[in-house]
Nucleic acid binder design. Structure first.
Lengths: 209, 209, 209, 209
DNA sequence: TATGAATGAGCTTTCATTCAT
DNA sequence: TATGAATGAAAGCTCATTCAT
């Protein structure tokens, strides 16, 4: 966590700094991101940076936490009470929320994506340590409930499925933002989502087993 | 491409160098990979390296090309003549080939995986430039044929589908190698593959539309 | 010397600060000691520190002075009136006092030892400036009196002898605290001291000239 | 050890660098010594320095080794065959050699002294690791032989005595170099040495037990 | 063709001290 | 009197690439 010093800063300055932090980690992954650039663009002394944050890791995880918070804020009521929806409705809601988040905070989305690809970077072990099971477990819980409800075939390996769904979600998001990101949120994407869910539900062959 | 000098090298020396190149890019992603380490372990002079290759980029893409070649070599006859198989058989063949390749060349597999996560690295634009359409196009062709044959629903966006299938393949491979990689190639994985294809074909819900 | 502000501080606060100062200079030598750590652990503001003390040097020498005072306090009556004892009894008293001091104030002892090894540090000139002759002079006086009394050979260079006795005392103390420090003060050490004084008096060869 | 690169350097350059290394470690102890200053004064690039040496530790220990070598070179035949001398003659020879070495290589002497005071520095553990028992053991061996020969009282704790003799040697050397160092080697010092040995042998009281 | 020394910008981090409030 | 934010020089070290021999 940043030091007290940081939170005592005038809001404007604090935000200027965070804006540059966001920019840096949006444009570069962890190892490539440069504290030098951040302080230079923020117009603060290098020493000051280290009065605010413990080290590079500290800013990075603070940023991730901020993004996580923003994500939770923007989550729909439906997602807070997942038991109330059938699996596919829930899934659709997850995707919708994800896309909405990406539209509102494209930088954060990019940072999140970069994070998920840190696998071979020096920061990965620390990422795992802090967020490790979180992502997959959330999905796994949803899948298990769905399987119990008979919405998912009993013979599927849910751990594999959870993994797949996460990577599929990333892919779908990337596809969407490359093709529609600038046009803003529209019905297009909902239709694409529907299409995607039909595939998931009934297979790409058209449901004829 | 490497310079002529490289190809004039005695085979043994050339292979020693490439072995160390492989090792380096298997263990580190592009930016972290160190020419220093490569030359040191190869036992060649730093200057020599730059007489063989233009620069870091040059070795890297040469390596990727080599891996591509190896992949093509090991491809089954069925894949060379994709028209002869129905879509799901073809797909199964692709996966089988992928897994076999991973078992025979685990280093290459790892390098490939690392490459696909370079999205956020400085090298990505160059990767796109050289291989950009390639991967997707291959898949796209197969999907189009399958769609024409009525094996895939007409209303699916094949570009999205191609992307998804690629990321799904990566995920599946990773899952396989994390869980079975050391036990070697066995029937287990074929069964898992079947399971996966059923999902793909009939949906995760069990084929009840 | 610390500024007035420091002495106006409530005793408790002043002592908390000094406790952390002691800890720091016990654990690190002058250059490595960190004002940062001191203020952090004392729970005072960085700025406050510089309102109490001129600078790092100032605290350090204030600490050394405090230790000196403590040393004087705990000195036995015998040492205050050195004329009343023969040289070897006096010497024994000095050592006994030193060991007792070390047992009562191990932190101070360590700080003192560290100080004597600052010879190569940036602070040494200042140490010399303030305490330079002091230590040697005390010894020198004792030695001179002893020489006059015929307790020490006339032909010895007392300045060299004083130096030697100081370094010997340090060595002896270190030896004692490494080997007996935890067991507390006991007759063991007095015996060792006796042994040592016999050497000093009659030589390591056994007194046969 | 320095890298090959360093030994391949033209002698002149190598010596210029080592001269600056010597100067730096003569003037500053390990933690304070600055690679920056060394390279700047040597007129080489910072990167070059790290082509020659692994790191700061590497130069430092290389320097210490060099000094050790020089010490061995200049050692008198008598010291190479210590069995041939009685204890006090041997001791005298040790001191004489030490002083001669100090006269010939005052910088090395200072570096050695600084090293012995690194006790509380970060480098100390490494020093111990490499040279740890060496110094004391050498002395201990000599003392044991002397004790067996009846040259030293049987009841003395040789470990303590060894320590004392080492610190006494340092003190004596410092005293000598502060007072006579510039005048060069002369009979003065031999007389002082004799004086010192008489003390050691028969006690400071004049041999009257 | 082979060599390996030279380069210098870049990295993250620490520090004692100042100064406006 | 108390505060704590600001400072910037300095630290050790790594890197891909160049170039004279």
């Amino acid at each position: 966590m940043p030091k007290e010093t940081f939170f005592n800063l005038p809001e404007e300055k604090r935000e200027k700094i965070m804006a540059e932090v966001v920019r840096e980690f949006r444009d570069y992954r962890y190892d490539e991101a440069s504290i030098n650039r951040i302080v230079q663009r923020s117009g603060i002394a290098k020493g000051s940076f280290y009065q605010y944050f413990e080290n590079k890791e500290d800013v990075y995880f603070y940023l991730l936490a901020l993004i996580g918070e923003k994500k939770m804020e923007n989550i729909s009521p439906a997602l807070k009470n997942p038991g109330s929806l059938d699996f596919f409705s829930l899934l659709k809601e997850i995707y919708r929320a994800g896309i909405e988040f990406g539209l509102n905070h494209p930088d954060y989305l990019e940072i999140g994506n970069k994070m998920m690809r840190e696998t071979s970077g020096t920061i990965w072990p620390k990422i795992l340590e802090k967020f490790g099971p979180q992502g997959q477990d959330a999905y796994l819980g949803i899948l298990q409930r769905a399987q119990n409800n008979g919405e998912i075939r009993k013979d599927l390996d849910l751990r594999l499925l959870a993994r797949m769904m996460i990577s599929m979600q990333m892919t779908l998001m990337e596809h969407y933002f490359e093709n529609h990101g600038d046009k803003g949120y529209s019905l297009d994407i909902l239709e694409e989502l529907d299409q995607f869910f039909v595939i998931l539900k009934t297979g790409i062959a058209g449901g004829k087993p």
